[in-house]
């Protein structure tokens, strides 16, 4: 009986997954256009100096001597929120670059299984690690320095790929987005 139920559930779930993967939002249908190279460039990591100021510990020291405990608490909460949002932005930057890597693979006449597998694994690992860092920030751990390192890393990757993408022709209509 268990076998029977498992088979039926598997059949239904597999079809559901296939239908979900086949579904494309109406906006995406019939409006296929080639991606512009600028769509892949990191955006958020460029604003790190402003975010660093907001997250710096100097402000915390300054405020602790002048503001009430309630104001400090509110400020801390806002600071953590800003950190989280900035981290989400960094993830978006990373996703764009990862997307560019996949586009490069699609347009290549030959791809290496090992390289593609490695990219996939690295991406999965990034997602897991990213969630862990978000959790740490939510717990109130200092974040400015960490975010700075991440921003410079993603920014560096972006600038190298900007050059690569600008010299690589992304043929019109090659990929529908």
């Amino acid at each position: 009986m268990t076998h029977l139920i498992l088979n039926i559930v598997a059949g239904v779930l597999l079809f559901g997954a296939a239908a979900l993967l086949l579904w494309r939002p109406r906006a995406a249908r019939g409006h296929s256009r080639p991606p512009a190279p600028a769509e892949f460039f990191p955006v958020h990591c460029r604003y790190f100096p402003q975010v660093r100021q907001a997250l710096s510990s100097d402000d915390a020291i300054y405020l602790s001597g002048r503001a009430s405990a309630a104001v400090c608490r509110r400020w801390n909460k806002g600071r953590r929120r800003a950190g989280r949002l900035y981290l989400a932005g960094l993830r978006q930057d990373f996703a764009r670059l990862n997307r560019l890597a996949r586009l490069l693979a699609v347009l290549s006449p030959k791809v290496r299984a090992r390289q593609e597998g490695e990219l996939l694994l690295l991406n999965l690992r990034f997602q897991i690690l990213y969630e862990t860092v978000v959790f740490r920030i939510a717990l109130g751990q200092p974040a400015a320095e960490d975010l700075g390192r991440l921003a410079s890393l993603i920014g560096g990757l972006g600038s190298r790929l900007e050059q690569a993408a600008l010299t690589t022709d992304l043929p019109a209509g090659a990929i529908t987005l």
Binding site: L97, N98, L100, A101, L104, A105, V106, L107, S108, P109, K110, V111, R112, Q115, E118, L119, L122, L157, R160, L161, A164, T168, D169, P171, G173, A174, I175
Partner: peptide, 17 residues
Amino acid sequence: PQLSTVESYEENTRVVS
């Protein structure tokens, strides 16, 4: 689709990974 070159793919993916 107009494909790129193997060299371009290898160089860029190496940078990314």
